[in-house]
Design a protein around this nucleic acid. Structure first.
Length: 800
RNA sequence: GGAGGUAUCGUCUAGUGGCUAGGAUGGCAGAUUGACAUUCUGCAGGCCGGGGUUCGAUUCCCUGUACCUCCACCA
């Protein structure tokens, strides 16, 4: 039979939606999280990651951003002047692509200027959505430090960085291949590539000296610049270092030994053409090979032999010609995966264009040294940084043949073609609209703008300097730089963490931050990464609407730093329950413990819970100091349930009979506990603080603070004349009797007529035995001989 | 292919060279109406496979397998 339990009164429930809106307004109106510009308190500055504005907002964001937020709130309570800014990264390709997709426009159809204005305008609602989420989540950000990477100020900082690097001789221009889609006639980034299985043929072609080469791109033969074999390959050892002639064209090309060649694949001989694929590019750079460009921006062959044919027709022509000469020795169908442009499915080609580079390969040792100077949390994440730096082969290419982004402050003289750089005072510069301040060295006064834009990392690598307003007014440079903390996810260690260290070294000769805290990813409930294409993206807003932000923050705190965390609704519900419990203990205190004064003659059980509190404060503080927010949360939560389920029950009868000490302890422990919980469940603890504690002088000086979030983090208190062994024995005895009542199907408040504790307990428990009587309704207690173990190490016999 | 990480009750997740491997959720059995049915108490349930070090390994080492991330990807 199922009985529905009905309660008489269920008023005063905690209503997250209502409370959170109210509290949010309160925080903002009272500037609770404002960085105090005039304070001489120690600053704690956080280099918040500006999320990429691409419209793909999901729970993973909530997961990683909450983690820095916990630290921010903790540090604030530790008395730091917290500098916690927020930015949006909306100067990059993902933003451009988002708008292209949404509106079916691009720079080709709309024209460059119109397109840029269009993206700038249409991205606004997305910006707002991001900001709304962070505000709803309750990030304790000082919104006066809100920035967008496409803003004029940030463009200026980024361009300043470029000019500074130029002055240091760290900028150079070099021809390099770029990914290009012949159909869309646009440069493509790696992000836009898709793998596609294609049916194709592999042809074995004979060069001079009986050298046979297998290739799937015979039409690139006129672009052949070298032949490669494996150094271990005995068959072809004889030709290494010699030259052979290409068929039809008769070009002489060197034979080079390289371990990347697989002697088992095809004939074991590879031709390197500029450019057929990524490996060709590497060889081109490594062996300083010649450059033969035979494909143009329209995807047509520029070599005279092909007479401007398309790639496929060209392939057909050359295969026929080779066959005619008997030079095709073999022809096999092959399935291979090729890179195609995700938008149109066209196979990607390589073009060669001048690119802007930052020269930094000579600085690898410095970067490793700086990586060591920064403290990594968790520590093992540093290995990824080291691996990345050690594996660097090329300088940093910062130009992109795209449209929406930070402009290069560069023009080219129409007369001599030399680049002309903007003056520092001119920044930010739009080379399409603005003009150089002076004439070219050659006397030329007409200029073409640099059409490339900067890669997004060239700018986001500057976030510490953006926050410091470097080159704008340097307002915060001294106060916040180097910053204290960089929080970020692990997947961009090699991009964001690394490039930030690079720029910080070059501009400031300093590490950018002292600590770096690396988060994992928020995954779906099956532990899979959220992808739009998989259809498993979980949106945060519906859960905020349903449960409130606090339970979601609670979920975000549910995994070890650096580990991934799958989204479990039950974890959110667990957060709701914790809040509910906290709320109700608050209500209980308001109803029953309101009148309380100074600490008075404490009972042993009071000292026991105070001692437990001390242990928790110590542990939680240590955990937070090592950025282990989860360890802190676990310690605090565990303690809270002991407080609410055990101590509160043990002390209840004394509270009903107006025991001053019990009331004092209830209040003291409760306040300290919700303080420690407030970094996690920020709204609900604030609401309780405002209703119950604020302006109640009995709670001490912290009750005069306008918000719980600027009260002081608890410290361990002194407990006089307390013997831990005896306190714990007392608590365990009471628990044992509670269990006994349960096992014997008695109500918890039912009366025990006689409790006989084993004599060995007498010296341990001492006078505190009397507390057992009131705690759990025992009429008489005596010591004697008892055999039943009611709790670990506690023997007793019980008569009800 | 290279580097790094992870593997614990049905599910999610802590932790440890040895004491009964902790919590949450779900399941089961009870209790309760002077804050809380979003409650309380209890019960059942687990260390990926193989090898090694050790008196003793879930923990340390090696190896296999699976999954995740980053990098490189086959002419």
């Amino acid at each position: 039979m199922h009985v529905v339990y009905l309660r008489d009164s269920v008023d005063n429930k905690y209503n997250p939606t209502e409370v959170e809106a109210k509290i949010r307004k309160f925080w903002s109106e009272n500037k609770v999280f404002a960085f105090d510009e005039n304070s001489d308190k120690q600053v704690y500055s956080i280099d918040t990651p500006p999320p990429t504005v691409s419209g793909e907002i999901h729970l993973g964001h909530v997961f990683s951003y909450s983690q820095a937020e916990f630290i921010a709130r903790y540090k604030r309570m530790r008395g730091f002047n917290v500098f916690y800014p927020f930015g949006l990264d909306n100067n990059g390709l993902p933003t451009e692509l988002r708008i292209e997709k949404d509106y079916g426009v691009n720079a080709e159809t709309l024209g460059r200027d119109k397109f840029i204005d269009f993206v700038r305008e249409k991205i606004q609602p997305y910006n707002e959505k991001y900001v709304e989420l962070w505000q709803r989540l309750g990030l304790s950000v000082d919104w006066q430090f809100y920035y967008q990477t496409i803003s004029k100020d940030v463009q200026k900082i980024s361009q300043t960085s470029f000019l500074e690097l130029l002055k240091m001789d760290r900028i150079y221009q070099m021809e390099a291949p770029l990914l290009f889609c012949p159909k869309c006639r646009t440069a493509v980034s790696q992000m836009e590539l898709e793998d596609k299985e294609e049916d194709s043929k592999i042809y074995t072609i004979e060069f001079s000296d009986n050298v046979q080469i297998a290739t799937s791109r015979p039409e690139l033969l006129p672009a052949c610049v070298a032949i490669l074999v494996n150094p271990e390959d005995k068959k072809h050892a004889g030709i290494i270092g010699k030259t052979v002639k290409t068929p039809i064209f008769g070009d002489e090309v060197k034979v080079i030994a390289d371990r990347k060649v697989d002697p088992e694949f095809g004939t074991g001989v590879v031709m390197c053409c500029t450019f057929g694929d990524q490996t060709d590019i590497e060889w081109y750079k490594q062996y300083k090979l010649g450059l033969k460009i035979i494909i143009n921006e329209q995807g047509k062959m520029t070599h005279p032999y092909y007479n401007n044919a398309k790639i496929r027709d060209a392939r057909e022509k050359i295969v026929n010609d080779l066959k005619g000469k008997g030079l095709v020795k073999d022809e096999k169908p092959i399935k291979h995966s090729v890179n195609v442009h995700e938008r149109c499915g066209t196979e990607i080609e390589f073009l060669v264009k001048k690119q802007w580079y930052v020269k930094y390969l000579d600085l690898k040792d410095k970067f490793l040294e700086y990586g060591n100077e920064v403290k990594w949390h968790p520590e093992y994440m540093k290995v990824r940084y080291d691996n990345w730096v050690n594996g660097l082969h090329w300088d940093w290419c910062i130009s992109r043949q795209r449209f929406f982004g930070v402009y290069f402050p560069i023009w080219y003289c129409k007369k001599c073609g030399e680049p002309m750089f903007a003056e520092k005072e001119q920044l930010p510069v739009n080379p399409f609209a603005d003009k150089p301040k002076s004439a070219c060295k050659c006397g030329g006064t007409e200029f073409d703008p640099e059409t490339d834009v900067m890669d997004t990392w060239a700018t986001s690598s500057l976030t510490p300097l953006i926050n410091a307003r470097w080159g704008i007014d340097n307002k915060y440079l001294k106060k916040i730089f180097p910053m204290n903390l960089r929080p970020q996810a692990h997947d961009i260690i090699s991009f964001w963490a690394f490039t930030t260290i690079v720029k910080s070294y070059l501009h400031m000769q300093s590490i950018p931050w002292k600590d770096i805290m690396i988060s994992g990813h928020g995954l779906d409930s099956h532990g899979q990464a959220m992808h739009k294409s998989k259809g498993n993206v979980v949106l945060p807003m519906p859960y905020i609407e349903k449960y409130g932000a606090d339970p979601l923050r609670y979920w975000a705190s549910s995994s070890v730093l650096g580990e991934n965390n799958s989204f479990q609704e039950k974890e959110v519900i667990a957060g709701s329950r914790l809040i509910n419990k906290m709320w109700n203990v608050g209500k209980f205190i308001e109803l029953k413990c309101k009148e309380f004064g100074e600490e008075k003659e404490l009972a042993v059980i009071d000292k026991w819970i105070l001692a437990e509190l001390n242990k928790t404060v110590k542990l939680a503080t240590a955990k937070f100091e090592s950025f282990d927010y989860f360890g802190a949360r676990n310690a605090i939560e565990e303690f809270f349930w002991i407080f609410a389920n055990d101590y509160l029950e043990f002390a209840k009868n004394r509270i009903y009979s107006e025991d001053k000490a019990a009331k004092y302890v209830m209040n003291k422990v409760f306040f300290d506990t919700i303080k420690m919980m407030s970094p996690f469940i920020a709204y609900s603890t604030e609401e309780v603080y405002q209703n119950l504690i604020k302006d109640n002088a009995s709670y001490g000086p912290d009750s005069s603070k306008k918000s719980i979030h600027i009260t002081s983090w608890p410290v361990e208190s002194t407990i006089s004349e307390y013997d831990e062994k005896s306190g714990e024995a007392l608590a365990n005895t009471i628990r044992g009797i509670r269990k006994w009542k349960h096992d014997n199907k008695k109500a918890l408040n039912s009366e025990i007529l006689k409790l006989t504790l084993d004599s060995s307990m007498q010296p341990i428990l001492g006078n505190s035995v009397d507390e057992i009587k009131t705690s759990i309704n025992v009429k008489a207690i005596e010591f004697g001989s008892a055999t039943e173990e009611i709790a670990p190490g506690i023997k007793a016999s019980i008569v009800a």
